[in-house]
């Protein structure tokens, strides 16, 4: 199913495509199927990854990838190119994944399930953080840490996981997420903060057990 938001051409996570991508897009819009296939190859890992993380199902992720790229092909001529092609298809994928999640009618886990830092009655951190705060680009993610992060992300209640993935992994703006999810920006900001705290806790826990 398509939505108006998918085809509105509103700028996405990237405000413009790269030159090679723009040329492929132009050719694809003129009906060059090989150019469209090249665009798909450039984006398929990210689209699949987003769908997999949101739905936690390989089968659903595969179907979402198919639906997303076919929908993009059908509406290629409507795409006005103010956003990068990648940002556009990621938004289509996010919409498709959300619709699938809504359809599943999974009972959301309670907010109490979210891990948070502990404080004493004076509001002081009850345990000092472990030492792992180097920026992400300076850190190597080993398999164990990667698995711990995957598990922690999967444990996030649905509305929190999707906001975290769309904002911090996909780079969408709060307004774009509100448009896709139908939630208010303040609610999205609150969920993002709690999701980040829960994931920080999980990483801290991982290092404390090493």
């Amino acid at each position: 199913m398509d939505t108006a938001a998918e085809h509105s051409g509103i700028a996405g996570a990237g405000s413009a495509g790269d030159d090679a991508g723009d040329e492929l897009l132009r050719r694809a819009q003129e009906g060059d199927v090989a150019a469209f296939e090249a665009l798909v190859e450039r984006e398929q890992d990210k689209v699949y990854g987003l769908a997999l993380r949101m739905t936690r199902s390989e089968a659903d992720a595969a179907e979402i990838a198919q639906d997303t790229f076919f929908s993009a092909y059908q509406h290629l001529k409507d795409f006005r190119g103010r956003a990068a092609f990648g940002s556009w298809v990621h938004r289509i994928a996010a919409n498709n994944a959300l619709m699938r999640l809504r359809h599943r009618r999974v009972v959301a886990k309670s907010e109490e399930a979210l891990a948070e830092p502990g404080f004493n009655p004076m509001g002081i951190l009850s345990r000092p953080p472990e030492q792992w705060e180097r920026p992400a680009d300076e850190q190597v993610i080993d398999a164990e840490l990667g698995s711990a992060i995957e598990r922690a992300t999967d444990r996030l209640p649905e509305g929190y996981r999707e906001v975290f993935l769309l904002k911090d992994v996909e780079g969408l703006s709060y307004e774009q997420i509100a448009e896709i999810t139908g939630d208010s920006v303040p609610a999205i900001k609150s969920r993002l903060h709690r999701a980040r705290l829960a994931l920080r806790e999980a990483i801290d826990q991982f290092y404390s057990e090493k």
Partner: peptide, 24 residues
Amino acid sequence: PCVDFLEQYKATPGLCKKALAAKM
């Protein structure tokens, strides 16, 4: 400790993005 916490809060999205990258 709060300075460490802030730096970790800042590093968390990037670490997760790296860990969650998937290949079709």
